[in-house]
Amino acid sequence: MRLQYPTNIRVIMVPCTGRVDVIHLLNAIEEGADGIYVAGCLEGDCHYISGNLKARKRVGQVKKILTELGLEPERVEMYNLSAAQGPRFAEIAREMTEKIKNLGPSPIGQKAKAA
């Protein structure tokens, strides 16, 4: 299919999005990531029954924490798509990149670079 998607995205593979915890997303923010999204399987299609639903809740928790910290909650998102949806994967990558570009760089990353 040779689909193009923005080069600024770094893919981190996990066995299931149920493995993704609040601390993993916070660590990314702490290290200066401008945005993070979790790409889980379609809801109802989790091989482990509810991994993607748990991931969605954790993303929600991180959004809450970002708001408390005075950062934009939109910097972290949850998406659902199947492994067969290559075009959708590329579309989400572009959509998220565009959204983060509009928000601008994370103030945490800016401070990290300046230091």
Partner: peptide, 11 residues
């Protein structure tokens, strides 16, 4: 991690 992010945000 929250404390570190908050401090980094304050420079």
């Amino acid at each position: 991690s929250e404390l570190r992010i908050a401090r980094k945000k304050e420079g």
